[in-house]
Design a binder for these strands. Structure first.
Lengths: 230, 230
DNA sequence: ATATTGAATTTTGTATACAAAACACATAAC
DNA sequence: GTTATGTGTTTTGTATACAAAATTCAATAT
């Protein structure tokens, strides 16, 4: 028997993906209100599936509801981003562990190929390309771990990280020249089927990003203090 | 200026909580279909906010949508429960770490009090009471860590764990006589402000539950094999 | 100039309506 | 006794309707 109806997709789901992409590629900007009527008209649908999709996104904290005044694209402060990265630290740590336990030789080759273009560059300048590779890398490890919840949660966090303030660096916290070594080490650990090491390296990878974010907060509060004093 | 409208709550949210509780206390049973019209009538509302709430729950994987045939209370296999517990392992590990970093003396006293009724019992027989204490314990640690995402995710997982098959043991995987020691050790670590130890002990706490679940799977597959052979 | 008021307008939250899909069950064919 | 077929009923997915709340903005008062 064929799994009929499995390919049927609610409008909800389609709209959900569309809005998610809009947030990711910054057609909808953090902090801005989402105009229901207008957006529904643009997409050629009624408000019903739109609202449904927005409710979904609210749950992922990608949008925020203010009762009786609408949906807004969620704006994250650096402090909250640290929270997100802490979560990614432990969750992707787990994903790396799982990946190291189950990866096939084939998948290993694919994983290694992701950064091959950048591996021998002394100075990486294609930030945008590297950012995409970075994303594929983390996504693939998540998929290797293939746990429904884990994958769903991490996909959301990934988007949040990307949509976060730092537009010029394409969502990257540290410079490619720096992170490329981390990525290589993590890949090695996974491909040599060493779960503990893989988890550990992945966690360290995120801890470093967190350090940078914490530094940024310190700098900002330092600046503010000066401004306030002057 | 007062934060007006903050106390306004959509019907969605209320219904969401109601259904969540119904799943938790097993008024709605895993695998069963949720009758929209009937439930809406029972709650005295239209289908609109009901569906909205169900969409929320879908996202938390507490209910499952089968397109064109409705919402069903999600049924988890033991295998998936292991996935949930792995997640709780790393997430509550993180929560314990955070808790150990910020706990006050007052909070510490409250934390210690949770199991005080059971601390000196040689054999704990009030499973239901212990189960509630267990839940308060894990919830409190999550709240001490007070990170929006973390708290939201863990609340969901907690409910899933509770609503899981093992009705007689009230959602507990191991026996209180056994886990009470874990809880004491975790409390000590948090209250002595030792983040690394707290995280470690919490992770071990969950790893032990995972071991039991894995054993259950082995036993089941063993049984099945025998049945199939005979 | 700034603050306040208060219609006019827009937007939200929820109910209702309705076509299309799924389901149930009786009857017919093999 | 199964397996198909058809028809009436239920339920779903989406649009639409509409009262209540929020927002806008011009007119007035401070």
């Amino acid at each position: 028997m064929k799994n009929l109806g499995a390919e049927y997709e609610n409008l909800d789901q389609k709209v959900y993906q569309i809005i998610k992409n809009m947030i990711e590629d910054r057609s909808l900007l953090p902090g801005h209100k989402i105009p229901q009527e207008k957006l529904a008209k643009e997409l050629g649908i009624s408000r019903t599936p739109l609202i449904s999709a927005l409710k979904f996104l609210e749950h992922e904290k990608l949008v925020q509801v203010k009762p009786r005044r609408g949906f807004f694209v969620r704006l994250f402060e650096t402090k909250e981003m640290i929270g997100i990265f802490e979560l990614r630290e432990v969750l992707e740590g787990l994903a790396a562990r799982r990946a190291a336990q189950g990866i096939t030789d084939e998948e290993c080759k694919t994983l290694r190929s992701i950064f091959s273009d950048y591996a021998h560059q002394k100075n990486i300048t294609d930030i945008s390309g590297y950012s995409r590779a970075d994303r594929r890398f983390h996504t693939m490890i998540t998929q290797l771990a293939s746990r429904e919840f884990l994958a769903a949660m991490l996909q959301t966090f990934n988007i949040i990280s990307l949509a976060y303030q730092n537009v010029p660096s394409e969502g990257l916290i540290r410079h490619p020249n720096d992170t490329i070594k981390d990525h290589a080490a993590i890949t090695d650990a996974i491909c040599s089927r060493n779960p503990e090491l893989a988890e550990d390296l992945m966690k360290t990878h995120f801890k470093r990003a967190i350090d940078i974010l914490e530094q940024q907060i310190d700098e900002k509060s330092h600046n503010t203090t000066i401004e306030e004093v002057s």
